[in-house]
Each structure stands twice: as structure tokens, then as C-alpha cells.
Amino acid sequence: MRDLLELSVSAAASGCIYALVALAYLLMIRPTGVINFAVGEWAMVGAFGGFLLLSKYEWPYALGMAAVLGFMLLVGWITERIAVRPLVERGAPLLAAILALLGMLVVFREGISLGFGPDPHQVPEPVSFEYLKLFVIGATLVVFAAVWLFFERTLWGKAFEAVALNRRAAALMGIDLRRVTVASFAGGAAAAGLAGLLVAPNTSAHYLMGVPLAIQGFTALVIGGVGRVEGALLGGLLVAFAEQLTVRYAPLPSGYAQGVPLLLLMLFLLVRPTGLLRARA
């Protein structure tokens, strides 16, 4: 029983990390249709930001966290200006932006590996280790509640949703599509950076940490559906529980557990490509 409880808390905490990455995808996909696989590298940048400010310069956690999130907003903003806007303005297809962002992924990864070297770097935890998982869960719930309120209760949230529903109609309302796009990238980068910062005390900051996170987050997104914010949270939790239950109870060598999300991904793409939660239509 105790064993199961521990497993649940631990799965919920990793599920929250995946959920934040899924949220990052979702914030960008909804208004623009662009799948940005660089979210994993953004998480890595967040983790290295944590290493730099919290380990190296020993800033207090709250201050360091705020600075990292602020920096991530900037990273998202710049990424959009460099890799997305010039293409959109020339009328290039979405695929062009997706590919340009894959290019950015490599730039981020190699930049970090040049700057910090290939070794993992320790990132401190915000609270004592036994409460770390609860902190991760709490922080994630706060973020999801805030994003949910933004979309459901604020006019600008409605405007974002309007862009997701119909870009042309949204433009005819006087919504500035460029501003919505850049804001969605900034928000996506902040969500991904937070995931990296929160996972780093367990995994350390490492220049190769991005791709697995990007895959797990994408799986969570596909399972939960891109239609609603809650879907990202649900999907993240499902992926993590499936992973950890397999490791714990299935007679598989531990390496195979990493295949579980991919198996789930394929299953959902075949059986229910819209995800569990449908968009309100």
C-alpha cells in the first residue's frame, strides 16, 4: 500500500514534468498550428539557467526561478522572431517553420554543449529532497490553473482561442496575429523552461536531456489532445503512470520501459488521433 502511494506520488511528479512540456507544445500549436520540437531544448536551457544562477551564483531559489522564467520568455520571443515570423510573412507553409525550429533545436543544443561542456551539472532542489515531488506537483498545478483561467476567464485568453478557432475571423476582429504568435512562443518557452528547471535536481542539467523530454511531452499531448489545456495535464499523468507501472510490475528489463511512451504514442495515433479530450466545437 505504502509502496503504491510512493509510486503514485513519484509518477504524478514526472507526469507533471511531461504535462508542462505538453503545455508548451499546446500553447504554440493552438494559435499557429506549428509543432515546435525544440521544447525539449528549451527545457534544457531552463535547467542550465538553474545551474548557472542557483548552483554557480547561489541565488535564492525564488529569485533564480523568476529570472530563469523571465529569460525563457525572452528565448521564446527571439526564437519566434528568428525562425518563424520571417517565414510566415513570406507565406511559407507551416512545415517550413517546423523545420526551421528543428534547426533551432540543434543550435540550442550545440550552443549549450559548447558553453558548458558535455558533463552533467548539478542543480539544487527548491525544498528538501523528500518534498521535491510535492513541490513539482504543486508548481505544475498552479501553472495549469493560471493558464486555464487565462483562457476561460480573460478577454485576451478568448482572443488567443479565437485565433486557434479561425485565424482569418480573428484578424477581422482586430486581433494582432503577430502579437498572439510571439506571445504563444514566449509562453511555451516559459512552460518548457519550468519543466527543465523542475526536473533538473533529479536528472542534472545535461546537454542531451532535451530529446527524451520532447518525446514524452509530445506523447502526453497526443494522448490528452491538443484541444484543451486540461488534456496536457491528463496526458502527462497517463504517460508517467504507464511508464512507472511497467517498470514496477512488468517483468521487463528496465531499458524497455523507455519504450512505453512511444508504444502509447503509436497506439493513440492509430486508435484515437484526436486525443482523449476533444476541443469544444
Binding site: 478577454l155 482561442e161 478557432l165 482569418r168 477581422l172 476582429m173 486581433i175 466545437a281
Partner: peptide, 26 residues
């Protein structure tokens, strides 16, 4: 300048009130 587009393009999941509110963004 405002356009009432061909096919109306209302935001279907949003309430009438929210549609109007979005119309007043500017």
C-alpha cells in the same frame, strides 16, 4: 473598417455575448 465575411465565421464554441465582446476588441 469592418467586414462581415462570407460564411459568417462566428466563433462557434463561444457564447453570443463572447462573440460580441471579441468584436469590440478595438
Amino acid at each position: 473598417v469592418r467586414l462581415v465575411p462570407e460564411g459568417r465565421l462566428v466563433f462557434s464554441p463561444f457564447s453570443v455575448e463572447d462573440n460580441l465582446r471579441l468584436g469590440a476588441l478595438r
